[in-house]
């Protein structure tokens, strides 16, 4: 299959410093927060890949790396035959890939400039990257996009505070698809919306993918939503991929204990208690021990092996990967 995106051994470490005073002339010891730690996966052309994990697992950092808003510490990001990890984030604005990888933000309100009308927001990428400067062509294209995402044209002159959350989400989507990107990254696109609107936006996204032939990287913590839109799912925990596989297979038979917990956490009517079997607190992502499984301490399985060797992401069946010494328990 033809891969649109291939991420190889990608790492992003953020330096954190203990700023507490610890004596004159001593430089505070520097620590590294392992936000994304040796992550590899690929995304086939036209595929929709889900990225699941809890806050702080590095999914937002991964999104910012792939959209080239921040520079990776190490690793490769192959997009359309080019290693875009090499382009410095500073120069990404003028690189061709910028129009090809676009992002729909989590918070539709926060991602719109309060001083721009809906029209201005949608027109922005067309003006900067699409080289459309004539006002009538711009007008036509923006109206066409508004139609495509189901945004009434009378709303184009409104400011973000004058339209509803669902309408803002549509503006954000219209802006992201304005340049017909090959890869659209959706960063929890419906988490700030009400269920009634969520359903509309999810259906819109499914339609757009079909009509425009885009590939999706769908980031979410809501497994019920991921199921609806994604062919394959990647599960991340503290900067590492713990499981990866076909959506249905993964939901039917999760292999990693964390994936199991995530699925158990989906509310079920009248069960009165969740089946989540986790304990303790997550390990610190700052200077983690490279030999200890990241899930150690929360996992019900506390074998010696888990404390001595980091489990690697291994293929279990075709297209099914898991990083655990004791999968399927």
């Amino acid at each position: 299959m033809n891969n649109i995106l291939e991420v190889n051994n990608l790492k992003k470490f953020f330096p954190t410093q203990n700023r507490v005073f610890n004596g004159f002339g001593k430089k505070p010891p520097s620590h590294l927060l392992h936000a994304v730690d040796n992550v590899s996966f690929s995304l086939a052309s036209g595929e929709s890949l889900g990225l699941v994990g809890e806050s702080g697992c590095g999914k937002s950092t991964l999104v910012r790396l792939i959209t080239r808003l921040i520079d990776p510490t190490e690793g490769e990001i192959w997009f359309a035959g080019e290693n875009i990890a090499r382009i410095p984030a500073q120069k990404a604005a003028r690189h061709g890939m910028r129009s090809q990888i676009q992002l729909v933000f989590q918070d539709p309100h926060d991602s719109l400039n309060p001083r721009f009308t809906a029209f201005d927001s949608i027109a922005e990428p067309l003006k900067r990257l699409g080289n459309i400067s004539q006002s009538d062509r711009l007008q036509n294209r923006v109206e066409e996009l508004a139609d495509r995402v189901g945004l009434s044209q009378t709303l184009l002159t409104r400011f973000p505070h004058q339209i509803s959350g669902g309408q803002k989400a549509r503006v954000g989507i219209a802006r992201a698809i304005a340049l017909n990107p090959k890869l659209l990254i959706l960063d929890e696109p419906t988490s700030a919306l009400d269920v009634s609107v969520q359903a509309i936006i999810l259906r819109l996204l499914a339609d757009l993918r079909e009509t425009l032939g885009m590939s999706y990287l769908f980031v979410s913590h809501d497994l019920n939503v991921v199921r609806l839109l994604c062919d394959r799912v990647v599960v991340m925990y503290l900067g590492k991929i713990v499981e990866m596989g076909n959506t249905n297979a993964l939901f039917r038979q999760p292999l990693h204990p964390y994936t199991k917990a995530l699925i158990a956490a989906i509310p079920h009517p009248n069960s009165r208690h969740s089946a989540v079997n986790l304990k303790g607190e997550p390990r610190s992502p700052i200077d983690p021990d490279p030999h200890v499984c990241r899930f150690y301490g929360r996992c019900f399985k506390e074998a010696k092996q888990c404390h001595q060797t980091m489990p690697l992401l291994q293929s279990k069946e075709s297209d099914r990967f898991v990083a655990c010494h004791f999968p399927e328990i």
């Binding site: 509803s164 669902g166 269920v195 009634s196 609107v197 969520q198 359903a199 509309i200 999810l202 259906r203 499914a206 809501d222 019920n224 939503v225 199921r227 609806l228 839109l229 939901f251 989906i266």
Partner: peptide, 23 residues
């Protein structure tokens, strides 16, 4: 009824997720 129909759950696929019209 509409609220329930609009809420994603493990048994529903996208075609069975029905948005609520209007605001």
């Amino acid at each position: 009824a509409k609220l329930i129909a609009a809420t994603p759950d493990p048994e529903k696929d996208l075609a069975h997720l029905i948005p609520i019209p209007g605001n």
